[in-house]
């Protein structure tokens, strides 16, 4: 099993930390992992993205041009990364702020209205965990016990009291993701 993922959105949406939690959870499951962030000027106010690879085997290149799964959280990222999903791959997106919905017919498209849901729950900060939950529903490559350990590992101890809230958000994300047809 090798899963090559791009997560892309605005700086501040928790894109990098979502990738980090997924990567640490992968380590807890004894997988090989790599986490390669965009660290450029785009991070300072624009788009941020991170490539996460989880695999049973040695990981060669941490930098990729095609992905099994793209998790897309704003329009700029949709414009850039829809075409990078491998044929037969998966695109997950939050429709908030999306003006041009994905059109590819050779991939599976899933929508998760995580931003709205986070607002309803009054938990804006766990928006990214709702999205992560959605991903894990579609691709259960890391089990929830290891996600818990991943959260413990990647969050500083002073935030450990928030782990339950994060897990609640993951569970909610699993419930609200749904498949859509290409636009």
């Amino acid at each position: 099993m090798t899963e090559e993922i791009i997560i892309a959105g605005f700086g501040g949406q928790g894109v990098l930390s979502m990738g980090k939690i997924l990567a640490y959870s992968g380590i807890m499951q004894d997988l090989e992992v790599s986490w390669m962030p965009s660290y450029g000027p785009e991070m300072r106010g624009g788009t941020a993205n991170v490539t996460v690879i989880l695999s049973n085997e040695r990981i060669s290149s941490p930098i990729l041009s095609q992905f099994d799964t793209a998790i897309i959280l704003n329009q700029q990222s949709m414009d850039k990364f829809e075409e990078t999903v491998k044929p037969g791959g998966i695109l997950i997106y939050d429709s908030n702020g999306i003006t041009h919905h994905p059109t590819r017919k050779d991939i599976q498209i899933f929508r998760i209205d995580a931003n709205d849901e986070a607002g309803k729950l009054g938990l804006k900060k766990v928006f990214n965990m709702i999205v992560l939950g959605g991903f894990l529903k579609i691709k259960p490559i890391v089990n929830l016990d290891n996600i818990h350990k991943g959260l413990e590992k990647s969050l500083p101890a002073r935030y450990h009291h928030l782990i339950a809230e994060n897990e609640k958000a993951i569970t909610r994300g699993m419930e609200i993701i749904y498949q859509v047809d290409p636009a």
Binding site: K20, A23, I27, E32, V33, S34, W35, M36, P37, Y39, I59, P62, I63
Partner: peptide, 10 residues
Amino acid sequence: DGAIGQMMEK
């Protein structure tokens, strides 16, 4: 290089 410096691995 910047990529090896910025990436995370085991």
